[in-house]
Design a protein around this nucleic acid. Structure first.
Lengths: 182, 182
DNA sequence: CCAACCATGTAAGCTGTTACATGATTGA
DNA sequence: TCAATCATGTAACAGCTTACATGGTTGG
């Protein structure tokens, strides 16, 4: 893989850039973050973190000074682009944790409008997933399902409903924030 | 990899065995299941399914007769062992979808006691995750977090709470089922 | 001085996924 | 007949993870 690979960095890479941008840390301290914080369940094992950091540095997205890893301008820009990507149906469907990580890091950008755009696209995606799940529950496919199967799908439904409420809550909170700042 | 690999099959493999056990199907029909059902978001692409089926057959876990894939005794036994594994903290933390898939397929075993055992271990695992998350929210680590970060963790909290309610609901439903069967 | 943690890595492999290819069948 | 769907694959690789290795430092 070349440093100019358009799909670089990986998710783990973005998370590392974000942590480094939030506060420059030693490689070891970055690694420890994955053990102590509950968000973004990547392995904290050295075999995960160190190679990832090496690739980031080779690509010029991070740099190390006095043992501290920090994000370069290029790294910050790449991170920002990633954070600002709209939330898709597929992402909330199979990578919800990543979506929420992106939201968490969005405060590094510190732009209420971007945050609002993120939240509305998040809400729309969750809402659509929920709609499709309900449609499935009412289709013939679900009729033939066992008691267990229906309950399992039900679990997905309540999960999406909870996220929908969360999104509404976050949106109204953001609006209040904006008002109080004025 | 040898056919006697102790960690075989993979998750995708187990899902395929389960579908085949529930109803023998052609490889193509199995593949299509991943497009049409919302549970267990594996890729439906041929590059995923066909190699997986081939490995299962090589390991003697499935067999094809008249074009229909069905689970062998060995396959059913392996599946049962997988389904009966207790739910761990790690599993609900990063593979909740898989956990719920396991629950859904548990009806193939058709043993109310095993289902109950599964649900209670599920409930315990979710409850513990929730406890840890709340502990984190009240720790010094969370105090330094941004508005965004706290909200993101909050989203995890409500997700676990929803699963906890689901577990309670499923457990009481199972008890009712048992009563009405007597 | 010995265990435990700090700190950094490499090698191998697992689990899938994407992209590509191919021929048969069928319906409009 | 021409597109769409059926049906089955291979090759390459992405994105981790686990297991292993290796030395330094520090506290009891």
């Amino acid at each position: 893989m070349s440093a100019s690979d358009i799909t670089f960095p990986t998710k783990l890479g973005f998370v590392l850039i974000a942590h480094a941008q939030a506060q420059p840390r030693t490689a070891y301290a970055l690694r420890k973050l994955f053990e102590t914080t509950p968000v973004g369940r990547f392995s904290s094992s050295p075999g995960s973190i160190y190679p990832a950091l090496k690739k980031l540095e080779a690509a010029g997205l991070t740099a190390t000074k006095d043992g501290l890893v920090h994000a370069t301008a290029k790294g910050r820009q790449a991170l920002r682009a990633w954070l600002c990507e709209p939330v898709t149906l597929a992402e909330v469907g199979r990578e919800l944790e990543i979506t929420l990580l992106r939201f968490a890091f969005l405060d590094l950008v510190d732009d209420a409008m971007l945050t609002m755009r993120f939240l509305t696209s998040f809400r729309a995606a969750v809402s659509e997933q929920l709609k499709q799940l309900i449609a499935f529950l009412q289709s013939e496919g679900a009729a033939s399902m066992s008691w267990h199967g229906k309950l399992a799908v039900e679990s997905g439904r309540i999960a999406y409903e909870a996220q929908l409420h969360w999104a509404d809550h976050a949106i109204s909170r953001l609006k209040k924030n904006a008002q109080s700042k004025r």
